[in-house]
Amino acid sequence: MKKTLAIVMVGIRQMLADPVYIMFLIGLPILMTWVMSFLPVEGGMYEMATLGVLVMFVALNIITSAGGYILEEKQNGTWNRILTSSTSYWNIMAGYFIKIFFMAFMQATILLLSSKYLFGAPWNQGYFEMIIVLIVYIFAMTGLGLFLAGFLKSQGQIQAVAMAVVMIGTMLGGVFFPIENPSTVIRVIASISPQSWAANALKEILTVGVSLSSLLTPLIWMGAMGMLLLIGGVVKLQMEG
């Protein structure tokens, strides 16, 4: 546990040392959220756009930082040095997981708070449900990000994969605009994409006000996906070499 925490702390210090990255993490999505606040509030369009931005930026951030962070460690040689320490692969993975999870959760919280308090979003219900959905969503995406990170060998690959995950999962998943008469492919994407599940769940919480028990399907799906990918990431680490 101490070892895991040490990995988390070093990761956070590393992140804080890079102000440009923090701008990308917080500044850009806040700007987007602000622009979205000019959309008409009726008919759920505003929610769709704002939550779409949130879900998309969280996904982008998680995939790029999981990949980039591990790549940087590999280039530094610190990755190998951690692997040769007496820390188990589970503890190592948990360290990266917690760091990325924490960072993405901060980002999501800042975006939601700024929507409401800076840009006047008319939301006043479902905070608890929202937090649960966000936690489970970020859990799933972090699992995906770390799993993919094991395969990515360059900054270019990270960009490409992040773009693919974000575009496919968000756009085709119907996060920003409802897709009329979806083809089978699109329906399949929407039914696996955690972005799609999360955005729809968040929107329902904010507009209709549903309870957690009716969100069981998305929560279980995203939770299972995160868990499997996390296990996959550790297994990949054990098989390597």
Partner: peptide, 29 residues
Amino acid sequence: LIGIVPQEPALYPMLSAKANLRFWGTING
């Protein structure tokens, strides 16, 4: 039982010498 000294220094550049050593000590139990 092993300590390694890789061919190229494997350290966190933005941390101090002490912070690096504390990290590697903790990671190694």
